[in-house]
Each structure stands twice: as structure tokens, then as C-alpha cells.
Amino acid sequence: MDHTRRFRVYCNHVIPGLLQTQDYATAVIAAYGTFHALADTDATSAARARLERSKVLARPGRTFAFVLEERTLRPGVADAAATAGQLERLLTVMALPQVSLGIVPAGPPAYCGPPSPSPSTTAPRSGSSCCPRG
């Protein structure tokens, strides 16, 4: 991480480690330990180490682009209080000029194809694209 200047991160199930709060990181690490049946998981110490690594966000000369699935923003791995704290952290980090954060919305994309030939046509035909070509 010391030599990396441009970070590009995509996550579809949890908030990336560099953006995590202590409570959220502890919950994620504990859940992984339980899932993998690890007997001795010191989630609190591991979360502290993760937060220490996140200081890279403040180092000059680096840029960060994060893309998250919408579901990462909802309570799941962490409880509601930890998730709320995590969302506040994301708002703070988003204000940093070196950080960009994109969210991929859940659900199907809105139809953006050619104009409908009739008012009853509201969805694309099977196999057609919703993305403009260019």
C-alpha cells in the first residue's frame, strides 16, 4: 500500500476495509471468523489494525475510487447502530477530494431504449440493451 497511488475498489457484500469504522470492522471480522469456524478470532484487534491501514486515505498523492453495491449500505453483517455509524463515516470520507464513491443501485435498471411504438410497450424486448450505444 505504501507505493500505490491509485486505488480502485469494488465491493458487493460489505463496505471496503479502508472505509470501515471500528464497530463495523469488528462485526465483519467476527462474522468471517464464525463463517470459517475459526476457533480464536480476535476481531477487535484485527479491526484496530484495519483502521490503522485506513490512514492511507489521508496521505498526499493518492486517489481512491470505490464502487459499492447498494446492499452494502443496509444492515446485515453489522447491527443497525454499527451500520448507522458506518454510513456517517462514508459521508465524511466522500467529502475528501481524493476519494470518489459510487453506488450501484439494487434492482433492474430503468428502461432507456428507443421510444415505444405504442403506449402499452414499457419494457425492452428480450435480449435488447438498456445502455446507449455510441
Rank of each mutant, 00 (worst) to 15 (best):
T72V: 15
L101S: 04
V28A: 12
F64Q: 06
D2Y: 11
Q98H: 09
R50I: 10
T83V: 03
P124S: 03
Q86L: 07
P119A: 14
A58N: 13
M94L: 11
A27Y: 08
F7N: 07
A80I: 13
R74W: 14
A47H: 08
V93F: 05
P132Q: 04
R71M: 13
L18S: 09
Y32E: 13
S100I: 02
C112T: 13
G102C: 08
R71C: 15
C130R: 12
G134V: 09
T63N: 12
A95E: 15
C130Y: 11
A39F: 00
R62S: 11
I15E: 03
I15V: 15
V28S: 08
L101Y: 01
A27I: 07
L38G: 02
P105Q: 02
A31V: 06
L19E: 04
A25H: 09
E70H: 09
A46K: 13
T83E: 08
S118P: 06
P109Y: 01
C11E: 15
C131N: 01
K55C: 06
G102K: 07
R89S: 09
P16I: 07
S120T: 10
H13E: 13
D40L: 04
V99A: 07
G33N: 08
E52C: 05
L101K: 01
A58R: 12
P109F: 02
V99R: 05
S100M: 03
T83A: 01
A43T: 08
S45R: 15
L51H: 06
T44I: 09
A106P: 03
S118M: 06
I103N: 03
